[in-house]
């Protein structure tokens, strides 16, 4: 799968409380959650995000609560990929399970600037900052995880009998 979009960049330790504040957790509707995505650190996110845009974060992206509403809100905002230096483990798991593309690549997360055009090939792990022309290589997922992702998430993988 190939994705391309404008980078929207944030810092280290972006927690699930700022990705989707708990005061909106009285719903689990993706479109409704997207309306409030990132608003506690970036009120403008909702207006500037375009379908296909790529979110870039620092270390420990998605730390905090286990709310799956966080990757759901990001995905429903139109974000096609999150690149970070590292991810908090529950967020990492949840993203795989719901089919939000994520990739851990410290070099790319460091070098890519806000507003740059970025493309990525998720099968090969090649990330390109098209604004600067720099290319980065990310670790591909282990085969077991690849199978969950290509099935379309954990629920689909279970339905297809890939894991039982």
């Amino acid at each position: 799968m190939k994705v391309k979009g404008t980078a929207i960049k944030y810092g280290d330790n972006i927690d699930t409380d700022v990705i989707i504040p708990a005061r909106y957790l009285n719903t689990s509707e993706p479109a409704e959650l997207a309306q409030h995505c990132m608003e506690d650190i970036d009120l403008d996110f909702r207006n500037k995000v375009r379908p296909g845009d790529i979110m870039v974060g620092g270390d420990n992206f998605g730390c905090g609560s286990s709310r799956e509403h966080a990757p759901i809100a990001i995905k429903a905002s139109g974000i096609s990929l999150v690149i970070a230096k590292s991810f908090a483990r529950i967020f990492y798991r949840n993203s795989i399970n719901i089919g939000l593309a994520i990739v851990e690549c410290p070099e790319a997360a460091q070098a890519i600037e806000n507003g740059h055009t970025v493309s990525a090939d998720l099968d090969t792990g090649l990330i390109t900052d098209e604004t600067t022309g720099k290319a980065f290589r990310a670790e591909p997922f282990p085969p077991f995880i690849q199978e969950i992702i290509s099935a379309g998430g954990l629920v689909e993988a279970a339905k297809k009998g890939i894991i039982r």
Partner: peptide, 18 residues
């Protein structure tokens, strides 16, 4: 350990988790 809702769903259905 903490997981998300989809892991919970899979766990409720199969009694298992990866």
């Amino acid at each position: 350990t903490g997981v998300g809702s989809t892991d919970m769903a899979f766990g409720m259905a199969t009694g298992k988790a990866w």
